[in-house]
Protein backbone atom coordinates (compact mmCIF):
# COMPACT_ATOMS: atom_id res chain seq x y z
CA UNK A 1 0.00 0.00 0.00
CA UNK A 2 1.31 3.38 -0.94
CA UNK A 3 0.10 6.44 0.91
CA UNK A 4 -0.20 9.71 -0.99
CA UNK A 5 2.70 11.27 0.87
CA UNK A 6 4.92 8.31 0.07
CA UNK A 7 3.93 8.54 -3.57
CA UNK A 8 4.75 12.25 -3.74
CA UNK A 9 8.20 11.49 -2.33
CA UNK A 10 8.67 8.80 -4.99
CA UNK A 11 7.56 11.28 -7.68
CA UNK A 12 10.02 13.97 -6.58
CA UNK A 13 12.86 11.47 -6.26
CA UNK A 14 12.26 9.59 -9.47
CA UNK A 15 11.67 12.73 -11.59
CA UNK A 16 15.02 14.12 -10.40
CA UNK A 17 16.78 10.80 -11.02
CA UNK A 18 15.19 10.63 -14.48
CA UNK A 19 16.36 14.17 -15.27
CA UNK A 20 19.94 13.93 -14.08
CA UNK A 21 20.66 10.25 -14.69
CA UNK A 22 18.34 8.16 -16.89
CA UNK A 23 17.90 10.88 -19.55
CA UNK A 24 21.64 10.73 -20.20
CA UNK A 25 21.83 7.00 -20.80
CA UNK A 26 21.93 6.12 -24.51
CA UNK A 27 22.89 2.47 -24.85
CA UNK A 28 24.03 1.92 -28.43
CA UNK A 29 22.94 5.47 -29.24
CA UNK A 30 19.26 4.50 -29.00
CA UNK A 31 18.08 3.05 -25.73
CA UNK A 32 17.10 5.50 -22.99
CA UNK A 33 15.05 4.16 -20.06
CA UNK A 34 12.00 6.26 -19.16
CA UNK A 35 11.63 4.79 -15.71
CA UNK A 36 9.23 7.46 -14.47
CA UNK A 37 6.24 5.64 -16.10
CA UNK A 38 6.48 3.27 -13.13
CA UNK A 39 4.97 6.08 -11.01
CA UNK A 40 1.73 5.86 -13.03
CA UNK A 41 1.69 2.06 -13.23
CA UNK A 42 1.85 1.47 -9.48
CA UNK A 43 -0.91 3.89 -8.44
CA UNK A 44 -3.75 2.23 -6.55
CA UNK A 45 -6.09 0.07 -8.67
CA UNK A 46 -9.28 1.79 -7.55
CA UNK A 47 -7.99 5.36 -7.84
CA UNK A 48 -10.41 7.92 -9.30
CA UNK A 49 -9.78 8.06 -13.04
CA UNK A 50 -9.72 11.87 -13.14
CA UNK A 51 -7.07 11.95 -10.44
CA UNK A 52 -5.09 9.30 -12.29
CA UNK A 53 -5.16 11.47 -15.44
CA UNK A 54 -3.98 14.52 -13.50
CA UNK A 55 -1.11 12.50 -12.03
CA UNK A 56 -0.13 11.43 -15.54
CA UNK A 57 -0.27 14.94 -16.94
CA UNK A 58 1.61 16.45 -13.99
CA UNK A 59 4.44 13.93 -13.97
CA UNK A 60 4.79 14.15 -17.76
CA UNK A 61 4.92 17.94 -17.62
CA UNK A 62 7.64 17.88 -14.94
CA UNK A 63 9.79 15.57 -17.07
CA UNK A 64 9.14 17.81 -20.09
CA UNK A 65 10.34 20.91 -18.31
CA UNK A 66 13.55 19.17 -17.34
CA UNK A 67 14.25 17.77 -20.80
CA UNK A 68 13.07 20.68 -23.02
CA UNK A 69 10.37 18.65 -24.77
CA UNK A 70 7.30 20.60 -23.68
CA UNK A 71 4.11 18.57 -24.20
CA UNK A 72 5.78 15.40 -25.45
CA UNK A 73 6.12 13.38 -22.24
CA UNK A 74 2.89 14.91 -20.91
CA UNK A 75 0.91 13.67 -23.94
CA UNK A 76 2.34 10.15 -23.72
CA UNK A 77 1.92 9.86 -19.95
CA UNK A 78 -1.65 11.22 -20.01
CA UNK A 79 -2.54 8.60 -22.61
CA UNK A 80 -0.98 5.89 -20.45
CA UNK A 81 -3.01 7.10 -17.45
CA UNK A 82 -6.19 6.98 -19.56
CA UNK A 83 -5.72 3.41 -20.81
CA UNK A 84 -4.21 2.01 -17.61
CA UNK A 85 -7.53 0.65 -16.21
CA UNK A 86 -8.10 -1.30 -19.48
CA UNK A 87 -4.61 -2.78 -19.43
CA UNK A 88 -4.90 -3.64 -15.74
CA UNK A 89 -8.23 -5.39 -16.30
CA UNK A 90 -6.50 -7.70 -18.82
CA UNK A 91 -4.25 -9.03 -16.09
CA UNK A 92 -6.45 -8.89 -12.98
CA UNK A 93 -9.71 -10.79 -12.63
CA UNK A 94 -12.74 -8.52 -12.71
CA UNK A 95 -14.38 -9.78 -9.57
CA UNK A 96 -11.42 -8.98 -7.33
CA UNK A 97 -12.79 -5.99 -5.47
CA UNK A 98 -9.84 -5.63 -3.17
CA UNK A 99 -7.89 -2.44 -3.10
CA UNK A 100 -4.27 -2.87 -4.13
CA UNK A 101 -1.35 -1.19 -5.87
CA UNK A 102 -0.10 -3.18 -8.87
CA UNK A 103 3.25 -4.75 -8.12
CA UNK A 104 5.25 -7.95 -8.33
CA UNK A 105 4.15 -8.93 -4.84
CA UNK A 106 0.41 -8.87 -5.51
CA UNK A 107 0.29 -9.80 -9.20
CA UNK A 108 3.16 -12.26 -9.57
CA UNK A 109 6.09 -11.73 -11.90
CA UNK A 110 4.44 -13.03 -15.10
CA UNK A 111 1.29 -10.93 -14.97
CA UNK A 112 3.12 -7.85 -13.69
CA UNK A 113 5.66 -8.04 -16.54
CA UNK A 114 2.84 -8.33 -19.09
CA UNK A 115 1.02 -5.35 -17.56
CA UNK A 116 4.17 -3.20 -17.44
CA UNK A 117 5.26 -4.34 -20.92
CA UNK A 118 2.04 -3.30 -22.66
CA UNK A 119 1.84 -0.01 -20.77
CA UNK A 120 5.46 0.92 -21.43
CA UNK A 121 5.29 -0.04 -25.12
CA UNK A 122 2.19 2.11 -25.64
CA UNK A 123 3.76 5.05 -23.83
CA UNK A 124 6.99 4.78 -25.82
CA UNK A 125 5.21 4.50 -29.18
CA UNK A 126 3.43 7.82 -28.52
CA UNK A 127 6.45 9.53 -26.98
CA UNK A 128 9.04 8.58 -29.59
CA UNK A 129 6.67 9.13 -32.53
CA UNK A 130 6.02 12.66 -31.29
CA UNK A 131 9.78 13.15 -30.91
CA UNK A 132 10.47 11.92 -34.46
CA UNK A 133 7.56 13.95 -35.84
CA UNK A 134 9.60 15.80 -38.44
CA UNK A 135 11.77 12.83 -39.43
CA UNK A 136 10.83 9.87 -41.55
CA UNK A 137 13.36 7.23 -40.56
CA UNK A 138 10.82 4.64 -39.51
CA UNK A 139 13.41 1.90 -38.96
CA UNK A 140 15.32 4.09 -36.50
CA UNK A 141 12.03 4.92 -34.78
CA UNK A 142 11.16 1.22 -34.45
CA UNK A 143 14.62 0.37 -33.11
CA UNK A 144 14.30 3.21 -30.58
CA UNK A 145 10.82 2.17 -29.44
CA UNK A 146 11.73 -1.47 -28.82
CA UNK A 147 15.16 -0.88 -27.29
CA UNK A 148 13.85 1.86 -24.98
CA UNK A 149 10.82 -0.23 -23.97
CA UNK A 150 12.99 -3.26 -23.17
CA UNK A 151 15.35 -1.16 -21.07
CA UNK A 152 12.50 0.60 -19.25
CA UNK A 153 10.78 -2.70 -18.38
CA UNK A 154 14.07 -4.14 -17.08
CA UNK A 155 14.68 -1.05 -14.92
CA UNK A 156 11.12 -1.17 -13.55
CA UNK A 157 11.43 -4.87 -12.67
CA UNK A 158 14.74 -4.08 -10.98
CA UNK A 159 13.11 -1.36 -8.84
CA UNK A 160 10.24 -3.72 -7.99
CA UNK A 161 12.60 -6.43 -6.80
CA UNK A 162 14.61 -3.92 -4.79
CA UNK A 163 11.42 -2.89 -3.02
CA UNK A 164 10.30 -6.47 -2.56
CA UNK A 165 13.62 -7.34 -1.03
CA UNK A 166 13.16 -4.81 1.74
Amino acid sequence: MLSSLQHILWVVGLVLIQAVFFNHIHIGGYATPFVYVWLILILNKNINRNILLLWGFGIGLLIDIFSNTLGMHAAATTLLAYVRPFILSLFVSHDSQEDFSPGVRVMGIGRFTGYVGIGVLLHHIVLLSLDAFSLFYWHILLAKIFSCALLTVLCILFIEFMRKGK
Binding site: N50, G56, F57, L70, A75, L79, Y82
Partner: peptide
Protein backbone atom coordinates in the same frame (compact mmCIF):
# COMPACT_ATOMS: atom_id res chain seq x y z
CA UNK B 1 -17.65 10.13 -18.74
CA UNK B 2 -15.85 13.00 -17.07
CA UNK B 3 -12.54 11.15 -17.30
CA UNK B 4 -12.82 10.90 -21.09
CA UNK B 5 -13.49 14.63 -21.41
CA UNK B 6 -10.64 15.41 -19.05
CA UNK B 7 -8.41 13.11 -21.09
CA UNK B 8 -9.25 14.90 -24.36
CA UNK B 9 -8.79 18.29 -22.70
CA UNK B 10 -5.35 17.36 -21.31
CA UNK B 11 -4.18 15.85 -24.61
CA UNK B 12 -5.22 18.97 -26.53
CA UNK B 13 -3.34 21.05 -23.96
CA UNK B 14 -0.25 18.87 -24.47
CA UNK B 15 -0.36 19.25 -28.24
CA UNK B 16 -0.83 23.02 -27.98
CA UNK B 17 2.22 23.17 -25.72
CA UNK B 18 4.14 20.90 -28.09
CA UNK B 19 3.49 22.90 -31.23
CA UNK B 20 3.55 26.41 -29.83
CA UNK B 21 6.59 26.02 -27.60
Amino acid sequence: NSHSFLFILLEVLCLVLLFRF
